[in-house]
Design a protein around this nucleic acid. Structure first.
Lengths: 350, 350
DNA sequence: CCATGACGTGAGAGCGCTCCCACCGACCCT
DNA sequence: AGGGTCGGTGGGAGCGCTCTCACGTCATGG
């Protein structure tokens, strides 16, 4: 009757990105055919496919993810959950490697990475609600402490989830990717023992993280196997200043130490620093072994003897694991354990 | 006629999360009222509001973002674009601080952070298509090189965009948050000049990044103002090994240097290392000034004199700027420039 | 020769939500 | 009293997409 009812159509024609309908019209096919052509092109004639392809380019068409997601119940995005309360901890190159690796796994897909950092307890409630709300197709959870048990409940929600680093409760059968941290600690012990070091101190990681606990146990086991007494053990927080503090603490307890194992390279850096600050030489007086094999330049141009920890690769594997889990859910997956290797550098052998 | 037509209804009743319809039914109100109650509760009676609130809890209702997004044309997510081709560069604490800061800005909103790292040229095409496709409400672009000009075209797409770090082309009027890098460089020069250092070397950053160029220019300007000749200038890549290499290069050119300005703390660490490797002392023989004020322990327990660069704060500000831009688009925004400060530590004064 | 596919196609419904609009009582003003 | 306004409400349309289904149109086979 009047022109008012046309308003929506006019508005649509005005700006905004082209819809599938527009695309189909431009290609001279139906919406259905256009849709098929976009999604794999099964049951589409070559001519129709070509027409649609051309129209896509001509119109600069991008499918509306919201609309697609609404009907497919897929969001084409995965969450990377970092339950780290402390911003300072984010500085750890570990997270950079994780992000890089996960991103790499997603590169060839159209999946997007949604970053979920929850710090306060309040936040974690929001996070879990978000994850359960079906806003992502899957989740990768990284570096969680014993207190972060809530993330482990993700296993029950049916949301495909992969952990990077062994979760505290493996009973729920959530797949995870981890380093054989125990073996890594053992390698460090073997190395120092073989060098003839006998008075060994330990800068362990936080006791509420599986990686730290495993490394410590492996290290102690290695010492035992070598017939050595474990010296003092101090826990650090995986940071360099923390490592330095721990080392000072260590030497206060046992000034005669001739070797120190730090459960991370960052802490090892602090250890080296503290050793030198006390007027001792590395490695001559005190040999230092780190963990992670970050490309860190140790002070004085010496390299840091360390245990490899291919975080980026592992994160990428976790991403691929997750993609598989999203493809066909319900299929159980075995944990993926990477073997560590010792890398000998100047901090233990002159 | 038969029961087949009921299948969808039955399926819906079966599993899957409750819809707004379900919520409304449970609350004894209409879908419209339920919707209003959820979205701010305007024009909703207290009773209705209470009923809906109760139903939300009872059903564990979460709005379907896809459906909402479909009609509101808002996605409740923003992109953090990192056009860094090199995974190693991601290790820079800078990015960790950026991510932390942006995340902080988004905390109180329901916005999610989508990470977009584009490395190859292929990727950048995908990235820009994604951004233009209306899949996010806004974008924050960080650390882009001169070659990454494509990101600056974002300004034309109408997508609210904020840069962290001045873009090369400020003509397009894209808002950005930056440090006064020029002034920072100048502060470093003033400091070393005041200490009586006269033979000064420079480890600059990559010449294709505005921050590096600005710091260099400020530094040179500061030297000029102090009546000093600029010594040799070598460009590093903002990494520690790169800084060490650059420093060695520097001392090969001019062994008599008694002060070095490195355009980042990471590089400064490498410089200190190289200086000591050459048998000189810091700060006695060579004073070293860094840039960024990362909480880095300099070798030997001395602190690093540096220029503050509150990246996390700036990133948070960028996030807030973006949120404002999303709220009411089309409104021009002035750049936000943070003043740097000199922090004097052991690497310049014994 | 018509049944039987395989293949390509288009119409239509509907995913869960918001928003416009019409409605309805309660209240206030001439 | 009658005609406003106004807070609160529900119905309906429609966002852009996928997917089921029925409908041609050809080749193939009995």
């Amino acid at each position: 009757m009047n022109e008012k009812t046309r308003r929506p159509a006019l508005a649509k024609a005005g700006r905004s990105s082209p819809t599938l309908e527009d695309l189909a019209t431009a290609a001279g096919v139906s919406r259905s055919t256009a849709s098929r052509a976009i999604n794999g092109g099964l049951k589409v004639s070559p001519e129709a496919q070509a027409a649609v392809d051309a129209a896509i380019v001509a119109l600069g068409y991008t499918p509306n993810r919201a609309a697609r997601s609404l009907v497919t119940r897929r969001t084409a995005s995965v969450a990377l959950v970092i339950p780290e309360p402390d911003a300072r901890v984010m500085m750890d190159p570990y997270f950079a490697a994780v992000i890089t690796g996960v991103n790499e796994a997603l590169r060839e897909t159209d999946m997007q990475l949604v970053l979920l950092m929850s710090r306060t307890g309040d936040d974690s409630a929001r996070t879990i609600r978000y994850l359960r709300g079906g806003h992502v197709d899957g989740a990768i959870v990284v570096s969680h402490h014993r207190a972060d048990a809530w993330v482990e409940s993700l296993g029950d929600t049916g949301l495909p989830t992969v952990f990077i680093g062994r979760p505290w409760d493996t009973g729920s059968g959530i797949p995870f990717v981890d380093l054989d941290n125990f073996e890594g600690g053992r390698l460090a012990a073997q190395h120092l023992a073989r060098l003839g070091r006998t008075k060994l101190g330990t800068v362990a990681g936080p006791g509420d993280m599986t990686a730290a606990v495993d490394r410590l146990e492996g290290w102690l086991q290695g010492l035992r196997e070598a017939g050595l007494q474990p010296g003092p053990v101090v826990h650090g927080d995986f940071t360099t200043p923390g490592g330095a503090d721990a080392a000072r603490n260590l030497f206060a307890q046992a000034p005669e130490l001739d070797g120190v194992f730090a459960a991370s390279d960052l802490m090892a850096l602090g250890v080296v620093d503290a050793v030198r600050g006390a007027g001792r030489r590395v490695p001559d007086d005190v040999a230092v072994v780190g963990f992670d094999n970050h490309a860190i330049l140790a002070p004085g141009g010496i390299g840091l003897t360390t245990v490899t920890h291919p975080v980026a690769d592992m994160a990428e594997a976790a991403g691929q694991l997750l993609l598989r889990a999203i493809e066909d859910p319900g299929q159980g997956m075995d944990p993926l354990i990477y073997p560590p290797e010792l890398v000998v550098r100047g901090s233990t052998v002159g």
